[in-house]
Computed example of a mutant assay.
Amino acid sequence: MAYRVYLSGEIHTDWRDQIIRGCKDSGLDIEFSSAVTNHEASDAAGDCLGEEGSQFWRDHKSAKVNAIRIQTVIKHCDLAIIRFGDKYKQWNAAFDAGYCAALGKPYITLHDEAIVHALKEVDGAAQAWATSPAQVVEILTYITNQA
């Protein structure tokens, strides 16, 4: 069975590439999807709807356009990996985790131990908490090889 895995969260490191490469090297049948990882493109997603005089309304429109893609992908995934980095606050990732929880979609959080307390509710609803992309690959290997 091919798994559909959504990769959510932090965009400043290569964690997505590490997971995708690790799964490919392990021969796993997984189809990956992700939020838009180009920060400028994501911020400009609503610009086609007209120029705004306020940054709030520009962000508001872009968030709604981005939500079309994100909500659709989450609804169709089998599992989400949600990465929280230590440099920036990933409120969008927390929202994705909550959306997964509301839909009953399993998710794995990926973050350092230093932010366990801040993410206690997000981790509490997750099926697993990993601290490295390699651990995520191990989990994906286990669940895809247990047919």
Results as ranks from 00 to 15, higher is better:
S62F: 05
A63M: 08
K64E: 14
A67R: 05
I68S: 11
I68Y: 04
I68W: 13
R69M: 07
T72P: 00
V73P: 00
I74C: 00
H76M: 04
L79F: 05
I81Q: 07
R83V: 04
G85S: 01
D86G: 15
D86H: 07
Y88E: 13
K89D: 12
Q90G: 11
N92A: 13
D96Y: 00
A97V: 04
Y99Q: 06
A101V: 08
A102F: 09
A102I: 11
L103C: 02
G104A: 04
G104L: 06
K105V: 10
P106A: 00
Y107F: 14
Y107A: 08
Y107G: 10
Y107E: 07
I108K: 03
L110D: 01
L110W: 01
L110V: 12
H111R: 05
H111A: 08
H111I: 11
E113N: 10
A114R: 15
A114S: 14
I115Q: 05
V116L: 11
A118C: 11
L119F: 04
K120L: 11
K120R: 15
V122H: 04
D123A: 05
G124W: 04
A126S: 10
A126P: 03
Q127A: 14
Q127F: 08
Q127P: 05
A130Q: 06
T131G: 09
S132Y: 03
S132D: 03
S132H: 04
A134K: 13
Q135D: 08
V137K: 02
E138W: 00
L140M: 02
L140A: 06
L140W: 02
T141Y: 03
Y142Q: 15
N145P: 01
N145F: 01
